[in-house]
Design a binder for these strands. Structure first.
Lengths: 220, 220
DNA sequence: ATTTAATTTTAGGTAAACCTAAATATTTTA
DNA sequence: TAAAATATTTAGGTTTACCTAAAATTAAAT
């Protein structure tokens, strides 16, 4: 199996496993990779023979230890390149995904590790997602969903749950970036929206928006 | 035809055309890409249909305008990434080729152009090879072969004609890098070797070595 | 507990990039 | 300039990743 294709399967399975504890379903993998279910079935057999997944016919698949290792290597590369693109080249966080999607497949340990050092060993990418270290270890970010916060809480944005450019652009408009502090001024029971103070301005955030915002205690 | 494969053919043809004015021969392309001649024949037909080459059966091929444009885009990306790897990540000039060989295929104009700016629009790569600009224009480097220099000339290294790691490592040992000044102290007629002064030391360079060194007038 | 619905797998096919080896061109040499 | 040597192309095959559609399995609903 071609490395790039293998990597895309492993990455897709990794992400699906984070949602469904059961594992990744054939159809969902097919959707993620934009291929047909039959193709996925074939590929799963090969990935299984290669030892990257644990696979029983008609069951959701999981990554083996070897598969997880690979997934974390890809994610590490993806997120490091994202930091590079934003910090060094000045791209917006809404523009970088497609480029990182290519760069993540470039597989030279030296390159990844030196990039890491060059970027000052960042712990999170521009979206707040943690970057696995050289050994595949993921630091845990302390976060809650914004909708889980109470009135008058003063919190700091640490991540997001939606990476669509349109969502990222909305956050830009609101002045919401990683580390931005926000105060919950009001919670509207009717539609779950909330009034928040960001910097000097106040905005209503729809429930759909706040559901996709992750916050943590803001350290001063 | 898959972009990566097309790019590798176009690049190989570009390089072969620089040596043979006639064009690139099937067998040489096959050698460069490590495939069989029959495969090359097939591919040439496709590249021709796609308009990247000018091809008549049993004749050496040349790049069309479109093909040259593509070649220069790839070379631009390759050389910019090489600068990045050396200047920013601290790799040696003997280590970077394989990585640049992958990075060169990542095709986002914005990425290339921002990388260019980030690196201060370099005009040459770490080996002294010129970097095409955004429009595919190649600046000409003023150079002569070291073997063409006369006794007592004082010149500056501006490039090399051999990119093998072992050659680059030898130059490192001699303290020869881009911009290094060298004085020709003696020319040995017997074997064409020469005694040169590099910094404070003197070395004999075999003809094979000096043949691969390009020098220019050293500007102070 | 069947039947129905949904999901997954299998079977048979296609296209791209490779291969080998035979056939055809071209070039070189005698 | 004809034969020999070299280079290129063509013809027929293989493999991989994809496809469609039928068959099989599992899950859901009556």
């Amino acid at each position: 199996m071609q490395p790039r294709i293998r990597e895309n399967y492993v990455k897709a399975i990794y992400k699906l496993c984070q949602k469904n504890k059961e594992g990744a379903y054939t159809n969902d993998i097919a959707l993620a990779l934009q291929v047909k279910a039959g193709t996925v079935s074939e590929s799963l057999k090969k990935l299984s023979e290669e030892g990257f997944i644990v696979y029983y016919k008609h069951r959701a698949v999981k990554l083996s230890a070897k598969g997880q290792q690979l997934a974390l290597r890809i994610i590490r590369r993806h997120r490091l390149w994202e930091v590079f693109l934003v910090e060094k080249l000045g791209f917006g966080w809404d523009e970088i995904h497609p480029m990182a999607e290519e760069l993540e497949h470039i597989d030279f340990d030296q390159l990844t590790d030196r990039l890491d050092v060059f970027l000052d060993k960042p712990s999170v990418d521009p979206h707040g997602d943690p970057i696995p270290d050289k050994n595949g270890k993921l630091s845990k970010v302390n976060y809650r969903n914004l909708t889980a916060c109470s009135l008058h809480e003063y919190v700091s944005m640490v991540g997001i749950e939606n990476h669509q450019p349109s969502f990222l652009q909305l956050l830009d408009q609101l002045g919401l970036r990683l580390g931005t502090k926000l105060l919950i001024k009001e919670i509207i029971p009717f539609d779950g929206s909330m009034l928040v103070k960001i910097g000097k301005k106040e905005f209503y955030l729809s429930k759909t928006v706040s559901e996709n915002i992750l916050v943590g205690p803001h350290k001063e």
